[in-house]
Design a protein around this nucleic acid. Sequence first.
RNA 1: GCCCGGGUGGCGAAAUCGGCAGACGCAACGGACUUAAAAUCCGUUUUUCCGCAAGGAGAGUGCGGGUUCAAUUCCCGCCCCGGGCACCA
Length: 816
Amino acid sequence: MPEKTYDHTRIELKWHERWGNEPALYKAEEDSSKPKYYVLEMLPYPSGALHIGHIRNYSIGDALARYMWMRGYNVLHPMGWDAFGLPAENAAIANKRPPREWTLNNIEKMKLTHRRFAFSYDWDREVTTCEPEYYRWNQWFFLRMLEKGLAYRKQALVNWCNLCATVLANEQVVDGCCWRHEGTPVEQRALDQWFLRTTAYADELLQDIKLLEGSWPERVLTMQRNWIGRSEGAEVDFQIEGYGPVRVFTTRIDTIYGATCMIVAPGHELVSHLSPEQQAEAKRMIDAAASQGPGDVEKEGFDTGFKAVNPFSGERIPVWVGNFVLMGYGTGAIMAVPAHDQRDFEFCRKYGIPVRPVIRPVDGPIPDVDTMKEASGDYGIVENSGPYSGMTSEEARREMTARAEREGFGKAAVTFRIKDWGVSRQRYWGTPIPVIHCPTCGVVPVPDDQLPVVLPRHIQITGKGRSPLDEVPEFVNVACPKCGEPARRETDTMDTFVDSSWYFYRYCDAKNSVAPFDRKKIDYWFPIDQYIGGVEHAILHLIYSRFWTKMMRDLGLITNAEPVRKLFTQGMVLAGGVKMSKSKGNVVDAAGVAETHGADTARLFALFAAPPERDMDWTEAGAEGIHRFLGRVYRFVTRNVGQPEPGKTPGDGSADSRVLRKLHQVLRRVTQDFDSRWHFNTSIAAMMELVNQAYLDESNISAAAMSQLIEVLTFLLAPFAPYLAQELWEEQGKTGPVFKQPWPAYDEDLARETEIEIPVQINGKIRSRISVPAGLEKAALEAAALADEKVQALIEGKQIVKVIAVPEKLINIVIR
RNA sequence: GCCCGGGUGGCGAAAUCGGCAGACGCAACGGACUUAAAAUCCGUUUUUCCGCAAGGAGAGUGCGGGUUCAAUUCCCGCCCCGGGCACCA
């Protein structure tokens, strides 16, 4: 056959059209005897266009999905849209178009690009989170949590961003600033907010990290552990004269005789009993803390004049307010032990509060107050501590905690860093919170049969002040479901992280109109076998998802305790060595790349440029190199398919064994890369080596070897370059989707080298190379090396101390 | 400050279990084909020294030590870059 020029546009558009008429091509089977495999990429926010970062994410998942199909699995590979969120509202303000219209337009555009790249999604299961069919179940879950006490309302200091004009979750505060507006300090405001009780699952979320070890990146697990932040210690009451008891949390009760003052947070209840001047000072601290960035903030505080009594020693110590004591952690009050805590040390030294060491190292003297430069946080032997003196820190902790419990002024306690999830947003473009505020009945849940509470379509969005829904009387004014009297609908909407906390369950039963999903379908598909996405979701999305799963399990809706079996976090795509961003104008648009280079080239390059977990740089020249490779493949196949005449073996047959050996080596490499570490860059490099070898031996390959080569090469390409693979499949006169063909098994015998070159080292330096049959044993290898001419010349007259012969690797002769 | 990653040619990278450092690709250079160019095909390409040459000798994976016949790989101590957490009592 004459070779054909690789015209990616012709090939890709041809199959694009054909596949467009085959809606069932990527359909997951509902009833299958095959083992299931659920592969999922994180769903995108419909910002308007897919960029190369998306393409990298989906190329990894798509290669895996296609590979698993070829391995005989029933693959579920869905896609959807994380469609609620702030940018739609911002766009609405800027363009005067409703958020819904903007969002759905974007989805339409992006879906075209998705299809242009031929990602193998079962679009019948598409989930769009801003549709009432989806978000009604957010509301339904919310009501279930309300019933269980897992959703509750409280007034709390919340993070407020002036630019967003809304409340931010703690997790959305980055370095004291809004996560979307770097440099905009977050302020503190008191509002009534809805919370989900994530802390109810703090222990289990931490414990179950064990189940994920080995199949989630260690880095993600560490981040989650830190985020949950479990500390064991004790709570102890200090009596305050003229006020009452104030409880502190400490992990170092063994140092309590060294407490020289108590410090409470500026937001502590005690502060409301202070003078107006002092209260104003505390308020100033709260606002300052909210606006302060990272790094060391100067510790400051003031003496309240109150005295607290140490329940162990009876000592009266001053009570201070300190800006470094957090209201949101522990009890919002601490006992300061400056000798053994660095923060307390700095504070007390600054304000002249005494420092009193009560712990000495096991093998040394107790620190000297006058020469101490910093606190000593080590455990040791307790001193100057009444009846506890002489005990180890460990013993003292046990004894003191026991006494506190016995005498009722304290107890052992565990504190977590993780906080309940504030889900209220004063936003329009989100799930309405399904409750009604009745002047007589209070907070009344919307009855299930009145779900969904639908967002009004036509609405004025200004991006300012309170929720836009407040301005829609027909939404706000309702009859109380309990008493029928006029009432007001809740106008806050839910955090969009709610949407993404369970969307992957909905894929299993996307069109269910009577329940979020049918449990039987979840039992079949869950857990997700492989989840792939950016590491930026290591904490928020992935903790909320885990929380949601446990909550649904406790509602009896599902049986799995964790949503995701294996997690893969891919690296970022950089352009010119820097992060792609709209402001830099260096975002590489996916649709444009498909046009100029082709979808296959873009996919393959996204996998070739670096191992998938690492950041990679997008370069035009690199993409062209991949395009050249695909062209080499295409031309080779088209000119050799059906050639030469069957039965004829040109040359001496050595070309066949070389090419087939390489073929099976590469097949082994690619198979192993899929099954273990996903270093597709080396898989693709191996395919290039194969093609290079095929070019060198091209004219001497027999018909049988050629047809095997072409077929297996087509299979090797199928997970990575679906268009080209399908075209080559057709060139071979075959029909049907190539990615549904069985993945070929590699042949170890064919892959084995017959003759290999072994380097011979003398004293660790390579001095010669010998060619030996593969598999030659140690003794024979050693003899062959010693018989080598060059080696003989070099060892002549020297004493051989030792010979290390490693079959298949090398020989090292140690001489003196 | 603490916790993770990472540091290898001009560039992206490879070396999977301690065994040939630099596979594969980019860029560059040379050759073939062409009136010419593009495309394509075939080569060269870590570096220093010796040699006209074939070839030979040395150095080299951030820095300094160590273990080993042998270290990009293991151990100890540093430096730099990226990310996460950061008064968590």
